[in-house]
Design a protein around this nucleic acid. Structure first.
Lengths: 107, 107
DNA sequence: GATTCAATTGAGCCTTCATTCAAGTGAGTT
DNA sequence: AACTCACTTGAATGAAGGCTCAATTGAATC
């Protein structure tokens, strides 16, 4: 059997550092995306109703979150729907997300 | 009277974002320093017994933590002693540090 | 199949950041 | 006062990151 994957989708043998996850979350826009997705899956346009940034820029940030295994992407017809990653949802506690090393709370 | 200072030493009028604090903590070395200081105040050399990095580099990281108001510096004879900032210690819970938006736990 | 809408990609630019090196400070020692 | 120890600072370099623009994909609609 393959080794289980950590929160960043890397072999759990390697240390998945807290710092690496924090780096991805240490950005206003990306943190806001995570907060928005706490309310459930959203399309990119829906996410951007709150953020109001360049769609291109948002896409780049979503890619970073995706690569960090923090969100999932699902094509829904002509729209694309993003959601918090299952591993995050499993550890979710109300409006807080438990990353193991770090528990984020949103107000 | 001067306005009170937030966790990053900035006027509390301005929003002190979670992302800005996370940016400072999103670094292996700086995160390790915070973890080490959970065991109490230490001199730079003592901190570096664990880390083993270029003293100059450590000093730069300590400066970043200082400027983020996460640690305090105190001259002790020819040594310099660092400690977690009072605001952090006040919100400390065991081996976890509550930053408001984010609660860091160390194992 | 051409068009439109939704989102993504890649290149380029500029800024920020981590690291190193050389030089400087501050405090105790001789 | 000169010397050493502990640490800091500033400048320089290279790497990483955020942002924008132009071009592209993917899916529905005409």
């Amino acid at each position: 059997m393959k080794s289980s994957l950590g929160i960043l989708g890397q072999p759990s043998g390697e240390e998945v550092s807290c710092a690496r996850v924090l780096k991805v979350l240490a950005d206003e826009t990306r943190l806001a995306v995570v907060e928005i997705l706490l309310n459930g899956p959203k399309t990119v346009a829906e996410i951007n109703e709150t953020l109001g940034v360049e769609p291109t820029l948002l896409s780049h940030h979503l890619k970073a979150l995706r690569e960090a295994q923090l969100v999932t992407r699902e094509q829904r017809g002509r729209y694309v729907r993003y959601a918090l990653a299952p591993s995050l949802l499993a550890r979710r506690k109300g409006r807080a997300i438990d990353l193991g090393c770090c528990k984020l709370s949103f107000t």
